[in-house]
């Protein structure tokens, strides 16, 4: 098992390396940052000095290794716009996105999976049919539209919940968190709901199809024949059997949402990563874009690694060295 984990870690490191090269080349291809940094009417001397100062006169491979060395030492550069270290900027925004995303996905899973299992267990009840109709809606209605409707109904018309911002936050572990205060939770509710609807619909469908498939198997028949209650059959046998695709989608969605909660964060003016990146792109804030891409690939690789390792925990057949 330890060997397997080490192997996976090595693979993750290689992927990270490839990603850094791609990001570097991609941003290099966008254009010369000097054009953005200094005014167009600067003298040739100033221009040359700036190029030398940023190391842009060196060969490409040398620039890449300088870039890599800086990343490894935790230096992601300074934002052009905010004039502060990018790492500080991103770390300041990450908690906002993290708490919003985790709330949305964990919530969608905790509520969606049991409902999906029910719909797969009793597919012909009215409730199951309503659930499936709702899940199609959750899939097909665009996020931004739902976000606007949520704001219109709950913030504007009913006035129950705030329309944007993080509200009051509490400082813990060096970051500010909204979920620790009542006001923060109120602010988080609508954006989290907005983000979770699609994932909620997906979890329902995933759990339902897995359950329907599993209910017909001999494993379930045998468990029933041994007198197990339907609750035990569903909670002990079926849930474990359908968990691998659910964990896979959970991981993928977690990564994707962390990186691309842009729409929701913009609509609800939630000061998270997505909103920062949109601002950086409009302002051509290159260090922020690069650091964001590096962090996003890091998060994705980390989540994928965690998902792969959890497979082994969920399915004993996938454990290495578990022969007969």
């Amino acid at each position: 098992m330890t060997g397997y984990v080490l192997g996976r870690l090595a693979q993750a490191a290689v992927v990270m390396l490839v990603m850094s090269a791609l990001v570097f080349l991609g941003v290099y291809a966008i254009g010369n940052p000097i054009d953005v940094l200094i005014s167009p009417d600067a003298t040739q001397d100033i221009r040359a000095a700036a190029i030398a100062a940023y190391g842009l006169d060196k060969p490409l491979w040398e620039q890449y290794f300088t870039f890599l060395g800086r990343i490894l030492s935790g230096d992601l550069g300074r934002s052009f716009v905010y004039g502060m270290p990018v790492s500080e900027l991103l770390l300041g925004r990450l908690p906002a996105t993290l708490e919003l995303t985790l709330t949305a996905i964990v919530g969608a899973t905790i509520v969606g999976v049991p409902l999906g299992i029910y719909a797969g267990w009793r597919p012909h009840t009215t409730f199951s049919k309503l659930l499936m109709g709702f899940s199609i809606l959750g899939f097909s209605v665009p996020t931004f539209w739902i976000g606007l409707v949520l704001i219109f109904v709950f913030a504007v018309e009913l006035g129950w919940l705030p329309a944007g911002g993080r509200g009051a936050t509490l400082h813990l572990f060096g970051a500010d968190w909204s979920f620790l205060t009542v006001d923060g939770l109120k602010h988080m509710f609508l954006p989290a709901l907005n983000l979770s609807l699609f994932k909620f619909a997906m979890m329902i469908r995933l759990a339902r199809s897995g359950t329907r498939e599993t209910m017909g198997t001999d494993t379930v028949k045998f468990a029933r024949a041994a007198g197990l209650s339907e609750w035990t059959v569903l909670s002990r046998h079926v849930l474990r059997l359908i968990s691998i695709p659910i964990v896979t989608v959970f991981g993928l969605e977690l990564g994707a949402t962390l990186a691309f909660a842009v729409v929701t964060e913009t609509i609800f003016s939630w000061p998270g990563l997505g909103k920062l990146v949109i601002e950086s792109i409009t302002a051509l804030d290159r260090p922020v874009m690069v650091a964001y891409l590096v962090i996003v690939s890091f998060v994705f690789i980390g989540i994928n690694l965690a998902v792969d390792l959890s497979y082994a925990a969920l399915d004993p057949r996938l454990r290495k060295g578990g022969g007969r």
């Binding site: 001999d218 494993t219 028949k221 045998f222 024949a225 046998h237 474990r240 059997l241 399915d315």
Partner: peptide, 15 residues
């Protein structure tokens, strides 16, 4: 109680 035909299918592989 009942015993089924295929023991590959009756036992739950993940428990």
């Amino acid at each position: 109680s009942m015993v089924f035909q295929d023991p590959m299918m009756t036992l739950n592989p993940v428990l």
